[in-house]
Design a binder for these strands. Structure first.
Length: 235
DNA sequence: AATAGTGGCAACCGCATATAG
DNA sequence: GCTATATGCGGTTGCCACTAT
């Protein structure tokens, strides 16, 4: 059984947004807030798909967007975060205020990637292109049979990357804080309280990670436990 | 001046996941 | 627990502006 389309395609505009469409969308979101994207187009009088409205708002119309060139600091942070998280653009974007995942993704593909290649660094593994060793986030159980990772083959740490990660005990009471935009998927409080959230699976969006995980993974040298991204700050 | 090639970016598409019923 | 649907994410495409020939 296939999924039904998110909207009626027959009567929706496509392509570049007009000024009038932008104004309608901004006015509607200001009046009613974000969310309910499916019903937004008709409510706002837009002949657009809800997904298209959401994308336009998030990537272009949101008032807190920074726009303009990336600073050197942002540049470096993106590289560091990418070396840690891979193509998790939404997670990376969450660490760069005013930047969107789409913007960072485009910037990576058009600028940083090329820059790293020019320096002889593999943009995927963040290791010298001549070095055949790759960094893999694949769970050992899912990985193809390869040589065991010896001490010499281990990927280098990022000593200057301060992510300020917080590890807390599963039963520790969480203080009330607004959820950060950082989380690709909001973490349920009961998952935290019951210690059911595996940060390897959650960060990497491994199938079924929202439910109890017994992978016993060792992610970034940390045993399965909880990882609080809300403390991450841009240095 | 015309054309081809290239780069940058906005937007689309399809899939994964969350969640309501 | 199952199904249908809304939302979010990452990959990809297509258009436009700029540069080279």
């Amino acid at each position: 059984m296939g999924r039904s389309p998110c909207c009626e395609k027959a009567h929706t505009n496509k392509g570049a947004w007009t000024r009038e469409e932008d104004e309608r969308l901004v006015a509607h979101v200001r009046a009613h807030g974000e969310g309910c994207w499916r019903s937004l187009p008709s409510a706002a009088g837009l002949l657009r798909c809800g997904k298209s409205c959401r994308l336009r708002w998030i990537n272009y119309l949101r008032p807190d967007l920074k726009r303009g060139n990336f600073s050197r600091d942002e540049d470096e942070l993106i590289v560091k975060l990418h070396s840690l998280l891979g193509n998790k653009w939404s997670l990376i974007a969450a660490r760069l205020p005013g930047r969107t995942d789409n913007e960072i993704k485009n910037y990576w593909n058009t600028h940083i990637r090329r820059k790293l290649l020019g320096r002889g660094i593999d943009p995927v593994t963040h290791r010298p292109l001549t070095d055949a060793t790759t960094v893999s986030f694949v769970h050992p159980a899912e990985a193809p049979k390869t040589q065991p990772v010896t001490e010499e083959r281990k990927p280098p740490r990022c000593p200057d990357l301060n992510l300020d990660l917080c590890i807390s005990l599963p039963f520790q009471q969480e203080e009330e804080r607004p959820p950060a935009r950082a989380c690709a998927k909001p973490v349920k409080m009961e998952q935290l309280q019951q210690g059911r959230l595996c940060f390897r699976c959650s960060i990497l969006r491994v199938r079924g990670a929202a439910t109890e995980c017994s992978c016993g993974s060792n992610f970034l040298g940390l045993r399965a436990g909880m990882l609080d991204f809300r403390g991450l700050e841009m240095k």
